[in-house]
Design a protein around this nucleic acid. Structure first.
Lengths: 268, 268
DNA sequence: CGAGATCCATGCCGTCAGGGTATCAATGAC
DNA sequence: GTCATTGATACCCTGACGGCATGGATCTCG
């Protein structure tokens, strides 16, 4: 829970050198200090990180895991500090999250041409937690595909796309040219994405293995075409919605500008 | 640089409450302590985070930025601790990075059916730094599309895909049915992805605006089709390669198993 | 096999960061 | 003008972190 970054850095040094003395030297502290700190760290975490003999130091499974996690944490801290300094110098920054298959470059370009001083960045989301980057502060605005967890989010619909029904090639309906929602009403639909059952790809996996049929946006169906699946237009299905989303309590001018530019850009 | 997580938590508490007294109460420390800690934190960072009057506390731009960054950092720390405990209890874990447009579910499924005890996860990469998740420990194996920075990586080619030439609809060659590499030899090619100039989308942007033509994998071309771009097969172009990549010094059995299953799964 | 080298752990000590209490100063409410 | 609220300052104490000296274990080498 309460993890100390200093001790984490110490651990990383030992993990990389596999030698307390050299690590201590590199850290500009005395070796006994390092021994104690690492031991204290292990006690705080409640598990052994290193197997020491007088001749060797090896990582336990927990130690290996921690070493991997440490990379990301320390990198995140470093970029955080840099960005805070940037912000202090007046640099503005906007990060846009986008879900698989969505295109954001038009809007990013329009936005940066209007705000050349603002640092922009994009970050891909995972299909089953599209809202995560917005909620944990990695992004301030998202291009997301419904449905997603929109509690606490303000959303603006920015486009529709036909849904197509996706089913195994061997499915009774697969021979048809097009379907109506009445046709698919009797079928088992795979719609709600959950962590375990469906990344986007796994959704197609489930469909291919006969667990049901899916209604997916046309562009996604096109890019994920597989020989064992067929896609059929559903003539009267409600179109699928693409949204802009921001945290509901955000009111910054920069965000308003982005939303305005984004919605304006869309009507070509 | 050397950021203290305790102080970061303190800052978050104040940022959320916008009140030192309440924040201190929530943190179970005395209010004067909190005042001093925050001030020390500001001095360490070298910039002001909060504007205090006796009646109100407001965030500066730097403070807002830090608050956003803090969310991600503290979340990352929490999951790191959880994963270390899991690893200590013997839970194994494998995270697969995949570049836009690649499909990993077949292999993930095959792998999890062989190793039901192993926690698997996938993480999308950004087009212009496909190797990043491998290098910072967020993933142990990647499904990447060449070219990427493979220094220190071990790669296994797992597939080829035809390249198609992508150019503006107004381009002289756009009327042709297909091209040879001789046709594109005289053209300005946009190939190396760099941070500023090209996310995948921005690459198409550049192409559309006449900065050159691109050679892209067929499946990508299909999913990113736009009215102002045309895609033409290049009959004799070398096919584009999809790779598995792992850090060169990784030799874990789990990784070897994954690579084996992955290569076996691919030859259907 | 014994001497020396190497390496991590332990004991003991000093310093300073972090936490507590008491109190002041500034501001807004009435 | 009085009082409540809130952040800052002053002063003290405890304990974590660092240093040094040294012990104990193991490997190497003659």
């Amino acid at each position: 829970m309460d993890l100390d970054l200093r001790k984490l850095r110490y651990f990383v040094a030992v993990a990389e050198r596999r030698n307390f003395g050299r690590a201590a030297e590199q850290l500009y502290i005395a070796q006994p200090v390092l021994s104690r700190q690492i031991r204290a760290f292990e006690q705080e975490l409640g598990c052994t990180l290193l197997v020491r003999t007088t001749r060797s130091v090896e990582l336990t499974a927990a130690g290996k895991q921690l070493y991997e996690e440490a990379q990301g944490i320390l990198a995140a801290v470093a970029t955080a500090v840099r960005r805070v300094h940037d912000a202090d110098r007046g640099v503005q920054r906007l990060t846009v999250a986008f879900s698989p298959g969505l295109h954001v470059s038009d809007v990013i370009r329009a936005f940066t041409s209007r705000h050349p001083d603002v640092e922009t960045d994009v970050v891909p989301t995972r299909w089953w937690e599209q809202d995560a980057p917005l909620r944990d502060g990695r992004a301030q605005v998202g291009y997301l595909r419904r449905p997603f967890d929109d509690a606490g989010l303000r959303t603006i619909s920015i486009g529709h796309e036909p849904r197509v029904a996706c089913m195994p090639a061997a499915h009774p309906l697969a021979g048809r040219d097009e379907l109506t929602s009445a046709d698919v009403a009797g079928e088992r639909l795979l719609d709600t994405p959950t962590r375990r059952t469906s990344s986007l790809e796994e959704k197609f996996e489930l469909i291919a293995s006969g667990h049901g049929i899916g209604l997916v946006p046309l562009s996604i169906a096109r890019s994920y075409s597989r020989p064992d699946l067929v896609h059929l237009p559903v003539t009267d299905a409600p179109e699928i919605e693409t949204c802009l989303a921001v945290l509901a309590d955000r009111r910054e001018k920069l965000l308003r500008d982005f939303l305005e530019i984004a919605t304006a850009t869309l009507r070509h």
